[in-house]
Simulated assay, not measured.
Amino acid sequence: MERIYYDHAASSPMHPDVAAAMLEVMTGIVGNASSVHGYGRSARQLLNQSRDRIAEGIGCTASELVFTSGGTESDNAALFGAARAARKRGKSHIITTAIEHHAVLHTCEALELEGFQVTFLPVNEQGVVSAADIENAIKDDTALISVMYVNNETGTIQPVAEIGEIARSKGILFHVDAVQALGSLPIDLRQLPVDLMSFSAHKINGPQGVGALFVRKGISITTLLHGGLQERKRRPGTENVAGIVGFAKSFELSVNSMVIRKLSLDKLRYTWIERMKSIFGEDRVLLNSHAEQCVPHIVNLSFLGISSETMLMNLDLAGIAASSGSACTAGALEPSHVLQAMGLPQERLASSVRFSFGLGNTMEELESAAKKVETFMSRVRTNA
């Protein structure tokens, strides 16, 4: 059976060039990057080259980039690190949104148990937080604002530059989860008023289990882990050199192909929406995101009258991979906290499905997928 992967926002397939670069390291480099002998120096050289490549591409210095195990650790390190450091200065209030990834939301909830006060701001029906709401929520003891760049369930882009300017004018640290933005939007940290930014490799055709955290020079954060002196004492533990080399390669490939990929993904996204509307009916397929301020690889649709569970089950039986939301919660098939925060009615909550496109997807494959959907929907209607 033909298998079609439309869940790239959960994890993207590794690019062959990335796998080749990692294999070369795994079969040729045996040293620990912290060792002083020749083997260790070879590993350290690869680590430094990878850090330099990524730093240059996002507009920061190599010393501002900390390698982690992925987006979740980067979010945790940023929030726990910044909040606990700020508490020493008498700051204990955090502002975030109700649509953040659970790596941020659950970390904020954990910080509440430590005595921090957290304001969870709502968003509008298109999933966008208001910069004015952010500004109005600021208090004298506000230590940190955390807002994601691109929502992982809807693809909606948040006004991070505007929010960052507000945070900077008030002397408040600003963290951005850019996991879904990397490779889809240009990021220049020389221009963006952001103090902390989280990244992950496996969303850009890199390896799973590798990520990074940008920490602007002069920003003090407490360490999440304790052990060695790696990553300038900010993230102890032996670095995953092969994974980091793979991250750098996937980053290079994604940045260099960003413009042409956007054209291709825009076409896939637009065509998929139109094909779904032609199959289900124009008024029965609703878009759950901002119509324009969104990335091209994610589309969240509600199929009125058909439950998410029914859609996902039939898609899977037809060999099509999609999801009901974040990969961290999709297995539970519970209503999306993101769509709930957008204030969508129950009918849309219960019938939403996220499709996300990327490497390997083609228009020919999309047409095949649409025909599969058309076939199983005819069956569903007949049995209804």
Score class of each variant (00 low, 15 high):
5 Y>D: 09
13 P>K: 07
15 H>G: 06
32 N>Q: 14
35 S>K: 10
38 G>Y: 13
40 G>N: 05
42 S>V: 07
46 L>F: 02
47 L>P: 05
47 L>G: 00
49 Q>I: 02
59 G>Y: 11
60 C>R: 03
69 S>M: 01
69 S>E: 10
72 T>Y: 00
87 R>N: 12
90 G>L: 08
92 S>E: 09
97 T>Y: 03
105 L>Q: 08
112 E>K: 13
113 L>T: 14
121 L>F: 08
121 L>C: 02
124 N>G: 12
129 V>Y: 01
131 A>V: 15
139 K>A: 08
139 K>L: 15
150 V>Y: 12
157 I>C: 13
164 G>K: 05
165 E>A: 03
167 A>H: 01
167 A>E: 10
172 I>N: 08
173 L>Q: 08
179 V>A: 09
192 L>G: 01
194 V>I: 14
195 D>T: 03
195 D>E: 11
198 S>G: 03
199 F>Y: 12
200 S>I: 02
200 S>W: 00
207 P>W: 00
211 G>L: 06
222 T>S: 09
225 L>G: 01
231 E>K: 12
234 R>G: 10
238 T>M: 09
241 V>K: 05
243 G>C: 13
245 V>K: 07
246 G>A: 11
249 K>R: 15
251 F>M: 15
252 E>N: 04
257 S>K: 11
259 V>L: 15
268 L>W: 03
268 L>Q: 06
274 E>D: 15
276 M>E: 05
278 S>F: 10
284 R>G: 01
285 V>K: 02
289 S>D: 08
290 H>G: 09
290 H>E: 08
291 A>T: 07
291 A>C: 06
294 C>I: 02
295 V>W: 01
298 I>F: 07
302 S>P: 14
307 S>L: 00
310 T>E: 15
313 M>I: 10
315 L>H: 08
315 L>A: 04
315 L>I: 04
327 A>M: 03
329 T>D: 08
336 S>T: 11
341 A>W: 00
342 M>V: 06
347 E>I: 02
352 S>N: 14
353 V>A: 03
354 R>Y: 03
355 F>I: 02
359 L>I: 05
360 G>R: 01
364 E>Y: 02
364 E>I: 00
365 E>M: 08
365 E>T: 07
372 K>D: 13
372 K>T: 01
373 V>C: 02
373 V>F: 05
380 V>N: 01
382 T>Y: 13
384 A>T: 10
